[in-house]
């Protein structure tokens, strides 16, 4: 198990290094200059040149990348090209709101998704199955930004139940303001979770150990929750691990539409202003987060599935 963990960790480091290298190549391949943004339109060419030299933009890309890796080993992600603030401090100030949003979205996806998936599988071919199927496909097919606008119009403006913008202060206010963005981001995933779980449950129901359990006279509820769901949930966990990546990407639109702070909007703004240190730092952070979440998903699967545990031990 530990060897498996160390292998995965090594793979994660390689992924992060490759992502950063690709990012450096990409952001330097596109035109644009952070100096103009940082100094304003009235800055002279001499000022712009001095600024570029000061933040190292006059160096070859490979040198810049090397400098970044060296700084990274010291725990230094550099400074914001515009404000001069340490990038790490900026990222840490924005990260919690993005994490709350992603966690809220996962909650939105998992709770109804598992319920609907289980319900549909248990009533396979019935009206309930067809209705849940329609619901699942419907929420998957509506674009998230359309859902976001409808949620805002109905629940913020029309009913005034939820605030339209901002992340709030204090636990209750934050939770209150998290509801609509989480719904907007997580709603489509209800469908994915429900469909995948339904298929997994139906497949698992035909496994010999389930037939054996039935032969022993165990109740359907016990078979479902103690034997079937435990295994059938595994593909859903894998998909959710990948889904976190999608949700991190989707956070950009949710943070813009709901005017929330967060990593997504930070990266978007930084790309527009060619604020390379912030872009690089933010992508590094989200890559690490994504890799760790997937590692965690694999470990959870290993913990839940004795067959996987056995394979790893072997």
């Amino acid at each position: 198990m530990w060897l498996y963990f160390l292998k995965r960790l090594g793979l994660a480091v390689a992924v992060v290094a490759i992502v950063i290298a690709a990012l450096f190549a990409m952001i330097h391949a596109i035109p644009g200059d952070p100096a103009r943004v940082a100094l304003g339109p009235r800055a002279s060419e001499e000022l712009v040149a001095a600024f570029r030299e000061r933040i190292g933009l006059d160096q070859p890309i490979l040198v810049q990348m090397g400098n970044f890796y060296v700084s990274l080993l010291r725990g230094d992600l550099g400074r914001d090209a515009v404000s001069g603030e340490p990038v790490l401090r900026i990222l840490l100030s924005q990260l919690p709101d993005t994490l709350y949003l992603v966690l809220g979205s996962i909650l939105v996806a998992v709770v109804p998704g598992v319920f609907l998936g289980t319900l549909a599988a248990r009533h396979r071919g019935s009206l309930i199955d067809r209705v849940t199927s329609v619901i699942s496909v419907s929420v998957m097919s509506i674009p998230a930004f359309v859902i976001a606008i409808y949620l805002l119009l109905i629940f913020s403006i029309e009913l005034q139940w939820f605030p339209a913008i901002g992340a709030g202060e204090g636990v209750l206010d934050r939770l209150h303001r998290l509801v609509l963005p989480s719904l907007a981001l997580g709603l489509a995933w209800i469908g994915y979770v429900a469909r995948i779980l339904r298929a997994s449950i139906l497949e698992e129901m035909n496994e010999p150990h389930v037939r054996t359990a039935r032969a022993f006279g165990l109740s359907e509820n016990r078979i479902m929750y103690d034997y079937v769901l435990r295994i059938a949930i595994l593909p859903t966990i894998t998909v959710l691990g990948i889904g976190v990546g999608h949700m991190l990407s989707g956070a950009v639109f949710a943070e813009i539409v709901f005017a929330r702070p967060g990593i997504g909007k930070l990266v978007f703004d930084a790309i527009i202003s060619r604020n390379y240190p912030v872009v690089t730092g933010a992508v590094l952070l989200t890559t690490i987060f994504f890799v760790l979440v997937n590692l965690l998903a694999d470990l959870v699967i290993a913990w839940l599935d004795p067959r996987v545990r056995h394979d790893l031990a072997g």
Partner: peptide
């Protein structure tokens, strides 16, 4: 002062009573 880049978002925020 709340930074909101998108004017449409700001309009919705205003109409929801947040601004």
């Amino acid at each position: 002062l709340v930074p909101i880049e998108d004017p449409k978002t700001a309009e919705l925020g205003f109409e929801a009573g947040d601004l």
